[in-house]
């Protein structure tokens, strides 16, 4: 089974992101692999262990060249890692485009059997790249998957819908986005990190990009702080909320 996993990195602590004159300043940020991408990669590795002869390639689209993310993916168990850089990446559409092109370049006419992504990246939370990538590759899309059972011909999946648990059935090839709960990603030790350094790692420049569909037009910092009024007793609080009109839906 040929599996491509799309990964990206996000700030370890969002509070390290600063805004300077309407632009984002990420210079103080420590980066980690997007947690949802870890679920995607872990699931790919479990499939690889179940289906001998499988290969897992980790792909990243990034504004700046960096090896750490790829090394982490290789240490977890990916066979090969490729990063496509472009300093002008603006939106989810361009990111999906870069990934689709990379998949085309790596796999040629024969598309991978599965493309796994995280449900969303924790920094911008658009949750758009997986579905857009599916559209570009002409594959169906199973989003926010929390359980996956695969055999050689088909897949059965579960996800939390708005109304309860949904069960999905699909044939290969397919784009899947991984939700929390799909698995618990493995930890990597010194040995895996050493082995990762021997595996193929490529960093290439993106070719010309299509125009973005959405363009970043500035930012401002936000304070989540409110002025908290401390109340002494539960009955005082109940009175305040009642007068605030919050008990209209309460049982008669």
């Amino acid at each position: 089974m040929n599996i491509a996993v799309c990964i990206c990195q996000v700030p370890d602590l969002p509070s390290a992101v600063a805004v300077v004159d309407g632009s984002l300043d990420l210079s103080r940020v420590a980066w980690v692999m997007n947690p949802y991408d870890e679920y995607a990669l872990e699931e790919a590795l479990r499939l690889k262990e179940r289906f001998p002869g499988s290969a897992v390639i980790a792909l990243a689209a990034a504004p700046e060249a960096g090896k750490e993310l790829l090394l982490k993916a290789l240490a977890m168990g990916a066979d090969r890692a490729v990063e496509v850089c472009s300093s002008t990446l603006q939106d989810s559409f361009q990111t999906a485009w870069v990934l689709a092109e990379a998949i085309g370049n790596i796999y040629g006419q024969e598309l991978p059997d599965l493309v796994l992504c995280g449900r969303e990246s924790l920094d911008l939370q658009n949750a758009s790249v997986p579905a857009m990538l599916a559209g570009m590759l002409g594959m169906p899309f199973a989003g926010s998957v929390t359980a996956l059972r695969a055999d050689g011909e088909s897949l059965e999946m579960e996800r939390e819908g708005d109304d309860g648990l949904e069960t999905l059935e699909a044939l290969y090839p397919l784009v899947i986005s991984a939700e929390k709960g799909l698995n618990i990603p493995r930890k990597t030790g010194i040995r895996q990190v050493m082995e990762a350094r021997k595996k193929p790692l490529e960093i290439v420049q993106a070719s010309a990009l299509p125009d973005p569909l959405v363009r970043f037009a500035g930012a401002e910092p936000v304070s989540l702080k409110k002025a908290c009024r401390f109340v002494e007793t539960p009955s005082e609080l109940a009175g305040l909320l009642y007068r605030g009109g919050f008990f209209k839906t309460a049982q008669e």
């Binding site: 700030p11 969002p14 509070s15 992101v17 805004v19 984002l24 939106d91 924790l122 920094d123 911008l124 939370q125 125009d211 973005p212 569909l213 959405v214 363009r215 970043f216 037009a217 500035g218 930012a219 401002e220 910092p221 936000v222 989540l224």
Partner: peptide, 19 residues
């Protein structure tokens, strides 16, 4: 412009639709 919260609600960013 679309203004939306990013980075856990700590930044309010503006986006311009191009299509």
């Amino acid at each position: 412009l679309c203004r939306r919260y990013i980075y856990s609600g700590l930044v309010l960013a503006a986006y311009r639709p191009e299509a």
